[in-house]
Design a protein around this nucleic acid. Sequence first.
DNA 1: TATTGTACTGTTACAACATTACACCCTTGA
DNA 2: TCAAGGGTGTAATGTTGTAACAGTACAATA
Lengths: 168, 168
Amino acid sequence: MHRNPDPRGTCAHEETHGRPVDGDAVESRARAYAVSKGVPFTPMRQSVLALLAASGKPMSAYEIAEKVSDARKLKAVQVYRALEFLQEAGCVHRLASRSAYFACDHLHGERETAVFMVCAQCGAVQEAASELVARGLRGAAKTTGFRPRHPMIEVEGECAECAGTPER
Amino acid sequence: MHRNPDPRGTCAHEETHGRPVDGDAVESRARAYAVSKGVPFTPMRQSVLALLAASGKPMSAYEIAEKVSDARKLKAVQVYRALEFLQEAGCVHRLASRSAYFACDHLHGERETAVFMVCAQCGAVQEAASELVARGLRGAAKTTGFRPRHPMIEVEGECAECAGTPER
DNA sequence: TATTGTACTGTTACAACATTACACCCTTGA
DNA sequence: TCAAGGGTGTAATGTTGTAACAGTACAATA
Ligand SMILES: [Zn+2]
Ligand SMILES: [Zn+2]
Ligand SMILES: [Zn+2]
Ligand SMILES: [Zn+2]
């Protein structure tokens, strides 16, 4: 059900599709967060974040463990620890629909509602913050007396590039 | 909310929190789908759907396998097969945020955008269809040329009952 | 300097979720 | 009778995520 599509098989122009994020910007955000929490920004955390930022696509923790070409072979549990920190720092998100993680260089207001748009063809993720969606959610919640806490919006579809080149 | 005398023993706690769906309605929808596809609506499928409808809460496949009190002990893979059919039939949804499945007696228009509101306390799920959210998503997609196909919106929070009775 | 506290690391084991593979039924229709 | 297509039962395996614990690094403190 949530097997990740094989990038090599589905998309010949992988290079054109990646949406690498600004690695430096995102790393400095992570460093700032580490300072604010009084914890170190370790090489482990740096490696995982750099890989995600460079790839620009969601990857599973096990995939990350394989691809962190840091000589050492990482175990998944180590990756999960790094991801936990990076998610707290706000520079990595988890895609529940794929059990995958990706780097993000946006600045998220505390109250923002992020929309993740995942391309079914190439796997690239685009992020948007829609006030209209946020209002809609508040409205839907109000009619049932529900108190929203953590909205999660993931849309599968086709990115502009893949829609434009329908048959690779 | 509906007349749904649970045949088998569900505990009293569940009783107060569950939001049982209309089991008959949802089963007839599943039967109609089976007919339309020329496949049988088997006892296996019926049992799984009935259990989900009666419980009114999301359950994992393994939980379902345990609780289908049908004398036989089901293996998870059998439950997954039934769930696959029931999801196609549109009477069961998967909650990605919890890797759980729940029955739904709504009629989903092809273009509707469903919002799942999951109570963090009691686990109950409420479903709503917000046109405002749908418009917001279309808007967000349009600005990036993204073609939305399967939106997935899950909001964690507290249902009216749990918010009203903080410490039951 | 020695001690303590805190957090990261490396490793093993395991829990929870999901799929693949295959043999064995059925029923339906040549 | 036979083959084809689907459902079932079972075992094995794959994937995702945590718990537990011993060891290490380092800073604050006595
Ligand atoms: Zn983001
Ligand atoms: Zn794409
Ligand atoms: Zn529904
Ligand atoms: Zn509740």
